[in-house]
Design a protein around this nucleic acid. Structure first.
Length: 412
DNA sequence: TCTGGGGTCCTAGGACCC
DNA sequence: TCTGGGGTCCTAGGACCC
């Protein structure tokens, strides 16, 4: 039986949601009608474009670009700060609405989802229009809906023309609608892969599709074999209406100033370890592998990781190991960004404690007591003395504790 | 383009084992 | 020590997604 999959994608999500919020709170200007972007704080060196309006797009402003560069392209650009809590709320409202139409939803990111609509037989177009209109009317923003028999084509379909469009894209449309497009438009073809493909005369999705599979595979290895399959529309994964198990947890931060002393780097790392440890404990995970990565002021990154003998979720252990790695890694150049990540996770229930493995029950109880205080009174309620009079925050990282933040899976 | 923060997966090379 | 072959594990780096 042929499946019917919808891919629903909010148009300029962060920007649209910010516009709706502003209008609902008495704002007179609809940000979507002027050149505007949602962007981070430039003073803290978080100044990049997170989302752009369609008028801003006309100035060739790109997501991920620095705000300074965006302003050069459009001097009177309106820059709106992000409000992630509100974005989550908007996303959740949309999800509730979609659930009225199908229980099989894969929330792919904060603003994208795949929905299995196979139970609608011939009237799926009307359903798509109804859903799109309801989101517009009830929630105030527009979406693109791509419809197809698999997730890949649904996603490609929703990207064909924006905004506020419903687009069908079936396998039979492949040669006409998809193959003439630049190969870069294909899911999983990024800048590097595009360059490689171009270097051998492959410019369109059709060029790639018509290559020999073995040729691509031998040349560019496994990831590109999948890209070849995508170009030929070979993709049949199900809409996953469950959470795939998390593989790693980490936090990173770009510091507002260059860090050139070990002492300050240590505080940043401690702040990050506090967050990573808290998140691990909250999820009842421990990790075997701890990784630290740094980016210097010239934007060059280095990484170092180490596998532990026993998995841990203890803040002090993570911090201690992170510092060992940091001291091996750091070449004394001023640092712009630091990150700490734990991977090779095991959950507390399946992990067997044995008397031979180091396990500090007292330390864990202390960690959890601090977690509880922070959950009730906020992260600032309790912190280590070394952060007194420091310009570095005692708990660093962007994942919200209570609101469950939507994570990407980066695969279909 | 003075470039954030959260992830996932793959590959190559080295160490080590038999 | 002019040195095989298969396998596993670990680490560093890179590419991609939103």
């Amino acid at each position: 039986m042929t499946k019917i999959i919808f891919h629903i994608d909010v148009n300029s999500a962060y920007l649209s949601w910010s516009a709706v919020y502003s209008l609902q709170h008495g704002g007179a200007l609809d940000y979507r009608t002027v050149p505007s972007v949602v962007g981070g704080n430039e003073e803290n060196r978080h100044g990049i474009v997170l989302a752009k309006s369609i008028p801003a797009k006309k100035y060739r402003i790109m997501t991920g670009e620095s705000l300074a560069s965006a302003r050069k392209k459009c001097p009177n650009l309106l820059v709106i700060p992000p409000d992630y809590k509100y974005f989550m709320k908007s996303s959740n409202s949309m999800m509730r609405l979609i659930y009225e139409y199908s229980p099989i939803i894969q929330r792919y990111s904060i603003d994208e989802s795949f929905v299995d609509m196979s139970h609608y037989k011939d009237n799926y177009m009307e359903i798509a229009m109804e859903l799109s209109n309801r989101i517009k009317k009830e929630l105030g923003f527009t979406v693109n809906i791509g419809i197809s028999e698999n997730k890949l084509l649904a996603k490609m379909g929703s990207e064909l023309e924006k905004p506020d469009k419903v687009h069908r894209l079936f396998k039979t449309d492949l040669p006409i609608k998809l193959w003439p497009l630049p190969v870069r438009n294909l899911f999983f073809v990024g800048r590097k892969t595009e360059e490689k493909l171009n270097s051998r005369g492959i410019y369109t999705i059709g060029d790639l599709a018509n290559c020999e599979r073995e040729y691509i595979k031998n040349w560019l290895k496994k990831p590109c074999e999948q890209i070849w399959e995508f170009a030929n529309c070979i993709e049949n994964s199900n809409v996953k209406d469950y959470k795939s198990p998390v593989k790693s947890m980490g936090n990173s931060t770009t510091i507002a100033f260059d860090v050139d002393s070990r002492d300050e780097a240590e505080k940043v790392i401690l702040g990050l370890c506090e967050m990573v440890g808290m998140r691990l404990r909250e999820a009842n995970f421990r990790g075997y592998v701890i990784a630290i990565s740094i980016k210097d002021s010239e934007l060059v990154s280095y990484r170092r990781q180490k596998k532990l003998d026993a998995p841990t979720c203890n803040t002090n252990t993570i911090f201690y190991c992170a510092m060992l790695l940091f001291d091996e890694l750091w070449n004394k150049k001023a640092l712009r960004q630091i990150s700490v990540r734990m991977s090779d996770l095991v959950d507390n229930f399946s992990y067997q404690f044995t008397m031979f493995q180091a396990y500090d029950e007292k330390a864990e109880r202390l960690d959890r007591a601090i977690d509880d205080i922070r959950k009730i009174h906020g992260n600032g309620a309790i912190h280590r003395a070394c952060f007194l009079d420091s310009r570095i925050s005692p708990v660093i990282g962007g994942v919200m504790e209570d609101e469950e933040y939507i994570m990407m899976s980066s695969e279909l």
